[in-house]
Design a protein around this nucleic acid. Sequence first.
DNA 1: TTAGGGTTAG
Length: 555
Amino acid sequence: MLSRFRFLGNFYSTQSRFFFSRFAFTQSDLPPPEWIEPFINLSDLSATNPEDLTPSPWVAPNFVAFVLASAEIQNKPDVASRFFAWAAKQKKYTHKLECYVSLINVLALANDLVKMRFLFGQLKEMQFVMTMSSANSLINIFGELGMVEELLWVWRRMKDNEVEPSLYTFNFLLNGLVSSMFIESAERVFEVMENSKIRSDVVSYNTMIKGYCKAGQTLKAMKLLRAMEMVNLEPDKITYLTLMQACYSEGNFDSCLVLYHEMAEKGCEVPPHEHSLVVGGLCKEGKCLEGYVAFENMIRNGVKANVAIYTTLIDAFAKCGKMEEALELFERMKTDGLEPDEVSYGVIVNGLCKSGRLDEAMDYLKFCSANEVAVNAMFYSSLIDGLGKAGRFDEARKLFEEMVEKDCPRDSYCYNALAKCGRINEALALFKRMEDEGCDQTVYTYTILISGLFRERKNEEAMKLWDMMIDKAFEDMITVLCKAGRVKEACKLADGIVVRGREIPGRIRTVLINALRKAGNADLAMKLMHSKIGIGYDRMGKIKRRVKFRSLLES
DNA sequence: TTAGGGTTAG
């Protein structure tokens, strides 16, 4: 947005200089602001009603473009639409390409996709000659919204009009494709760049790296980092942050640490977030002392700690059973001028509950409620769990019911904590309540119930729940694998369900189709959508054909 | 033009 503002500023100042020298303007010139302002309030466009404007000679295309660009900067889609419509009605006036681009942009910001599509349909019919700046802007906006068809139209149009794409055009295109998870297409564009006059730069590499990370192909992303060194391109802090973030989410903290040292060695600026990833990684592995060393190291390097880093460390100490150290860090954080938030308090409350210090934990709950710290479900689940384990069932139940009064939605953790400490009938009633309240039952919920039922020798009921759980687990597993981009494994699992004589529900097919599409396998997604893969039963329940999901990926 | 925080259970 800033860059467009800058563009507009340059555009305007050069034009107005031109103006003063000529003292008059023609249809295509732009009037200076002091000429426009009696008619239209540029600093607050909503104060102007376009219908009140005197038309000629003010309806110069550049004037309209300028007002629309102002509306875009002020994010006023209604004003822009009205002004656009008003201008279109004036005699001898037709919109310029830039007017369409401005209005499309402001509509995109307002998320009005329907109007955007309609307008783009008009633009396509206008036979405009595509310009570089309009193409860049459109490719950027369509890319962000995942409107790949529209994006490719602009790209082709540019080619037809023999407008040479710039490095920015390529990078916008790459980013658009990557945001819409068209990774294979992005790969092809990247290859084209490698072989063209325009060489890919750090941004192009970073964008491809982001794409691979999003698709769960961290190894490919790593290879690209090494490829940068081969072409003498210096990776920057964004390259490292993207990769470290991906390694961190995969739980690969060693690689995270390697990248961290690498960037420090290269003298690359290390942003606070990279430090958090390292401290967080060490803490997640239970190495709270090493995490603490990294934390001190960060402060020595002049990077100020923030609430998130403190919270990570406090939690790590609490989990190692070092509650006193955790509380000391909590105090240090406050003397450091940082205000603990609900997550920090949640970590403290959870730690206290785990170490059996329930009354202190209850005091924190009271303190937070009285001091406008948002009390969330985690506070309650920790306390309900702790109270239950200490045999204080009534207090646990009371807290569970109190959540409704306090407008705090109950999650599965709260239900499970209470179900675990009560009798089996109570737990079954809670299972039903979860369903009614739309709270997801987890594997842990089923485990509590099944073991409870077996203990009471209600074996048949237990087995029924077991079957329910297995079906749900398969479905969850497929969803999780798809989200991680591991479509091949998801397909194998789906085949496993069919072999066991069960059918794949439509909603899981959709998950698979979307995963294939996101992984850049649009063709395979189409194939699955229109095929009978996995659906292998006739009306008598006999297997008619059993085409495996896996066959999709083997072809 | 690209990136961007932490917490909960057997």
